[in-house]
Nucleic acid binder design. Structure first.
Lengths: 204, 204
DNA sequence: GTCTATAGTTAGATAGAC
DNA sequence: GTCTATCTAACTATAGAC
């Protein structure tokens, strides 16, 4: 066999792929099991129930298996730097490249927030992400150069930077945000986080 | 009459109020016209169609009539300050207090993004908000103290700050973000935007 | 402008043959 | 594991009396 996955695994993957596309296009309640079955290789609706007990189970599987947390933690753990500035520049530069590639997931997370009060995302976040992020922050604060900020402040500021970057990139209708290339925007955002937007000799 | 609104206006308001609550709780496709009619004073479904031609028209009316743009522009136009720092502190302090009060609207905007590709929000943004914001930025850049940043960079940084603040406040499940009071968080965010997170004498 | 009643459609999920 | 056929419930929207 060319593909060593079982027939069932292939079907499962096709169903999830079709469901993801339709959820993103039409929302959760706007997507019917019929539509998913048809998009997943013209299957019969009943066949879907061999792989997932309910429609919600398909959605939950998407959140659990296609999230960017592994990539995010990989970047945080592998970023190099002898100073806090070098580490943050290295990590955020990569994060601002990689996270927007998971825009589909962020859209699914918004659906989760609306349709399920965020419970699927929250479970993965609290189980897999937060514990590891704490360790990263401790290591970051041991590097020289940071203002004496509370760790939780540091986490929220960096998370806000990434979230704000992604949201403003996709929300502004026909705005000029796309006229500058990503590298310029990334640099501007990181510089602003590190040193702010005020002139140095204007400090009051 | 105690209320000088016509009977029709009262019904319209009740319908919109019920629809908003249900859209926020259950999403757009998850909310039926039946449920709206029942929540709006146990009305008959057919009565809704005297006030709105379709279900989408109810949603559009919510976006158009309950958005925070008037409040936002009011703050930007009324903020005082002889320097850029004073103006930004004044404006952002107010914005970070007022905008989270419109969290319901942001949630409706997310629904718009998912169900209607953001077309209702984008229309209001491009017609009413962007033209006025340009004027504010020009005035801000005439004040002393700013680094020589492109106006569009300034807009996106400030928008990201506000969006990131609101999103991280409501997404993190049971996280410690609520353990510090709003005033502290607001101050931390504004300070970070103005002067960054690096120690002054650590600049490389 | 409100109601009752209902038309016409589509939803999620299941039964049972293969 | 896949299919055809179907159940029951819910949906948006309309007709027509008051």
């Amino acid at each position: 066999m060319i593909d060593d996955r079982s027939k069932g695994d292939v079907a499962r993957a096709e169903i999830m792929d079709a469901a993801r596309q339709l959820f993103l296009l039409q929302g959760y309640n706007g997507t019917s099991m019929r539509a998913i079955a048809q998009a997943a290789g013209n299957r019969a609706v009943a066949g879907l129930y061999n792989h997932f007990p309910t429609k919600e189970a398909i959605f939950r599987a998407l959140i659990e298996e296609q999230n960017p947390y592994g990539a995010l933690l990989g970047i945080l753990n592998n970023a190099q730097g002898e100073t806090a500035e070098a580490y943050i520049r290295s990590a955020l530069t990569d994060i601002l490249i990689v996270m927007p590639q998971y825009y589909d997931f962020f859209q699914l997370a918004l659906i989760d927030l609306r349709e399920f009060e965020g419970r699927h995302v929250a479970q993965v976040l609290s189980e897999k992400v937060f514990p590891q992020v704490i360790g990263v922050i401790v290591r970051l604060q041991a590097l020289p150069g940071l203002k004496p900020l509370d760790g939780v402040v540091l986490v929220r500021l960096m998370a806000s930077l990434v979230v704000g970057y992604i949201v403003t990139r996709n929300i502004a209708p026909g705005m000029t945000f796309e006229q500058l290339p990503h590298e310029v925007w990334s640099r501007q955002f990181i510089d602003a986080l590190l040193y702010g937007i005020m002139d140095d000799d204007a400090r009051e």
